[in-house]
Amino acid sequence: MVTRTFDKAPSTAPLMLKAVLPALPVIGGLPGIKHAKGSVPDIVLERTGVATDRAHLETYSEVCGFPRGDHLPAPYPHMAAFGLHMALMTDTAFPFAPMGLVHLRNTITQHRPIGVAETFDVAVRAADLRPHPKGSLVDIITEVTIDGELVWDEVTTLFSRHKGGSAESSPAPLTGIEAPSGVVHWKLSGDLGRRYGSVSGDRNPIHLYPLTAKAFGFPTNIAHGMWTLARSLSAVQNKLPDAFTVDVEFRKPILLPGTVVFGSQAYETEILFGVKGAKKPVTHLVGRVTTKS
């Protein structure tokens, strides 16, 4: 296993350009641009001594609906890891071209709250390349530690569509679970993707403008899945324990601008939640918070 250490977050703007190149005719097949196939890279990307920029945290909280507090919102460590994710996915040893991937599922475990003033280390690696009925899945594993203690981890599951897929070896975490009905309407503006992209560094063209999204087959720009996850957790923030796991599945993209409906249902040891369309009962996201013992 090779470890690559970054003294600061990789700049995502040049990595976005690098992510596009493998999708271009002719250019995408050139050495140094074409991605290898068949296995995940045996590398770990890491940052150490990461401190939270309070102004950035405040902007993130405003975009995603979190209140101010002494601890980081549960999805916020993903911000520190995203540049590493991009560096990993744009490495030619990664088995898929980034622009062809779909963020299908996400699992975050908060082992304990992270204080705003705490510094932490972040490590990212790829794992578990496996079949899917319509292609393949691969996970990006993120671990956040403080003085060697694992305090937060994430599994980002990406889907690559291609022929020759087969059934998954085990069922997805939220198989058979439907989003609860709700009455809370969120009216989403057309610039939501640009606002979240600015704070997260995820400026994928499908999220920015109708024109750039249409170039990739969408009728208009779409909301980030990680924004929808974060906004959902902010809506149940007062019900979250100190230690929990949240699983989400992104089922249909949210077109911008638009209105969606959020619903949740709390039980003794879990909270189910989901986001549906306001005009059509299509499910955009379904999630489950499970209390850690």
Score class of each variant (00 low, 15 high):
M1T: 05
T3R: 14
F6Y: 15
K8P: 00
P10M: 08
P10G: 10
P10L: 00
L15S: 07
K18M: 06
P25M: 09
I27H: 06
P31C: 13
I33Q: 13
K34G: 06
A36F: 02
K37A: 14
G38A: 10
G38I: 12
V44G: 04
L45R: 03
E46G: 04
R47D: 06
A51G: 00
A51F: 01
A51N: 02
T52D: 03
D53V: 04
L57Y: 00
Y60F: 10
V63G: 04
V63C: 00
P67G: 01
H71G: 01
L72T: 03
A74P: 06
Y76I: 00
H78R: 01
A80K: 00
F82R: 03
G83T: 05
A87V: 01
D91S: 09
P95M: 12
P95R: 07
F96P: 02
G100H: 09
V102Q: 08
T107F: 03
T107P: 00
R112Q: 02
R112W: 03
R112P: 03
V116G: 00
A117N: 02
A123E: 03
L129D: 07
R130D: 09
P133M: 12
K134M: 13
S136A: 15
D139T: 03
I141L: 13
I146S: 03
L150F: 06
V151E: 03
F159T: 13
H162K: 15
K163Y: 06
G164L: 08
G165A: 11
E168Q: 15
E168I: 12
P171K: 11
G176Q: 09
I177R: 13
K187C: 14
L188E: 13
L188T: 08
D191F: 13
L192D: 08
G197D: 13
V199F: 01
S200G: 09
S200V: 07
S200K: 06
N204P: 14
Y209V: 04
T212M: 11
T212G: 06
K214F: 08
G217K: 10
N221L: 08
H224S: 07
W227G: 04
S232L: 07
L233Y: 06
V236H: 10
N238Q: 15
K239D: 15
V246G: 03
I254G: 07
L256T: 09
V261I: 14
G263C: 14
G263H: 10
S264T: 11
Y267Q: 13
E270S: 15
I271P: 07
A278Y: 13
K279V: 08
K280N: 14
P281N: 11
V282H: 12
T283W: 06
H284V: 12
L285G: 10
L285N: 12
S293A: 12
